[in-house]
């Protein structure tokens, strides 16, 4: 019988085991952790990993959605359905003050909009609830400053990341010590690639928002990006909405999330597209390109 035992872990199994170890470590070491849930594919994978990590028990921490009020309707519908099913508390936090002041990317610019509605909202919600650890679904292959970040990433009292002075992180022994008011951002998917995420979604039959699948959608072309007509978007001169067969490779706020031309209507087709794709996933995220090193700047201020 021993002869037939195999001790080989596939790359996906290795990644899964690593992520689960990270998630359990947080539950074991922190008083009040929270899992950031952004409704996207990475969050969905992370949530599934959390379910697995504590099976047959319940996930011992709540989920937190930092809402800008500018997500796609399909995302809200997906989130609310999920919240009814998972049996874990979902906290929705919005920077109501900034929202009521009408902050938006069109009149205030993307940098300011992100800073108020995402970064500040995130830092405030962590403070308000006294969370000492917050999981995020960011991956190192997404962007070059994320490629530099530790799995357990220390943030000071203001949520600030100091990339030049990160804690050494050896083996899988994670330093989880912090003082009151400080927190740790934890990235269980650090070593996953975009392709890994899709292969895992297929393998585990994880539901995702339909926006990822190709469909004819009402779009405009702006600055070389395909922008959806999802909410009230002020049209510039010469911009006319048109029906385009496209899908979203990554999901954010609708005014700042571009679609890609695609006919991939199933996970298998998405994976196939992935193999041949020549542009990066975040190429359609307008906020990544508003200045050189803009992700690093946002992260320093407390963005995920």
């Amino acid at each position: 019988m021993k002869m037939r035992e195999k001790y080989i872990q596939s790359n996906l199994d290795q990644l899964e085991a690593e992520s689960i170890h990270i998630i359990r470590e947080v539950a074991a070491e922190f008083e009040n952790p929270v899992m950031l849930y952004s409704i996207g594919k990475d969050s969905s994978v992370m949530l599934r990993l959390a379910q697995k990590a504590f099976h047959p028990g319940k996930i011992p921490f709540p989920l937190l959605h930092v809402d800008t009020g500018m997500k796609f309707n399909e995302m809200y519908a997906f989130r609310d359905k999920l919240a009814r099913q998972i049996g874990t508390r979902l906290i929705v936090y919005r920077n109501e003050e900034a929202i009521s002041r009408g902050i938006n990317p069109f009149s205030h610019g993307t940098q300011k909009c992100c800073s108020f509605l995402k970064t500040q909202a995130l830092v405030d919600s962590i403070k308000k609830h006294g969370f000492d650890a917050a999981f995020g679904g960011a991956r190192r292959d997404e962007e070059r400053s994320r490629a530099k970040e530790r799995v357990f990433s220390f943030r000071d009292e203001n949520g600030v990341w100091d990339p030049k002075n990160q804690r050494p992180e050896l083996w899988s022994i994670y330093n989880t010590r912090i003082d009151k008011g400080q927190s740790i951002r934890v990235f269980p998917l650090s070593n996953w690639t975009e392709l890994d995420v899709w292969v895992y979604i297929l393998r585990e039959k994880i539901p995702v928002v339909p926006l990822y699948f190709a469909k004819k959608r009402e779009m405009i072309v702006r600055d070389g990006q395909l922008i959806p007509i999802e909410g009230p978007i002020p049209l510039k001169k010469g911009e006319t909405p048109q029906k385009v067969l496209c899908r979203f490779r990554t999901l954010g706020c609708y005014p700042c999330t571009g679609a890609v031309l695609s006919s991939a209507a199933s996970i298998e087709h998405i994976i196939e597209e992935m193999i041949n794709v020549r542009t990066s996933e975040r190429a359609t995220r307008i906020i990544d390109h508003d200045s050189d090193g803009s992700m690093e700047t946002k992260k320093r201020e407390g963005y995920f």
Binding site: S10, N11, L12, L195, E268, E272
Partner: peptide, 10 residues
Amino acid sequence: FISCDAAKDL
């Protein structure tokens, strides 16, 4: 492709 990819080690 997926089954080949899944069998790869790291």
